[in-house]
Design a protein around this nucleic acid. Sequence first.
DNA 1: TCCCTTAGTATCTTTTTGTATACTATACCA
DNA 2: TGGTATAGTATACAAAAAGATACTAAGGGA
Lengths: 119, 119
Amino acid sequence: MDKTPDLCRVEDALSILVGKWKPIILLHLLQKGTQRFSELKRSMPGITQKMLTKQLRELEEEDIIARVVYPQVPPKVEYSMTDYGRSLEPILEAMHEWGTKHTVHKQAKLDKEAKRQEA
Amino acid sequence: MDKTPDLCRVEDALSILVGKWKPIILLHLLQKGTQRFSELKRSMPGITQKMLTKQLRELEEEDIIARVVYPQVPPKVEYSMTDYGRSLEPILEAMHEWGTKHTVHKQAKLDKEAKRQEA
DNA sequence: TCCCTTAGTATCTTTTTGTATACTATACCA
DNA sequence: TGGTATAGTATACAAAAAGATACTAAGGGA
């Protein structure tokens, strides 16, 4: 079974998940449900407003998340996963699981290297 | 169940999978087994030597792939998945599957927009 | 003798990402 | 009157990733 012509599909999936922040945003929304802009921002120390805005817009553009604006002052905007976005959950879960294992593997490797330095 | 402290794990997994080329390289190696540098390059029109080299080195550094050099001229270098690298297969498969669905979704969306333009 | 091959390096330029900072609107509170 | 809050936008800048191009070694073939 040759899958070569489909390889580009993986790139498509990746383009939605990658970036320093997207998977984290998605996991927050999956785990906590609807979140306001400021709640997301507080959950991710280090992200700038510009970046968060940009990532959210891109995810919205792909129908992964929904954006609801309440015409108030001060502004209120809520973000949530769409049904379509929730279909990403298996990938996120697989990555989460693998990431946990990977950390162990990486630590073991570092320990081994440290030992070699000692000798 | 709060998973917040584990969010970074996903980033770990991502850091290995991301980049425009890594998942494609990995799928090629998973599907075809051991490959020479030039075979990989030919499978990925558009990638530059520099990029391919860089991605392969990074994957090697993470123990995802193995690199075997034959001391010949012209040079011969073979790449293959390590056992550890093969543990990424479920993620790659999940992404592949989702990517295929996503393409359909995206196309449907474009068609709908095209229709709206006509009206 | 020149050209071909392979698996790279080296160097430079462009593009993409990310950061920092300042600014906005409008209601509420002291 | 001034400060607080929210969800942004605008601008300038720095850093990282990606791309284009030229170069290398050493043997074989025309």
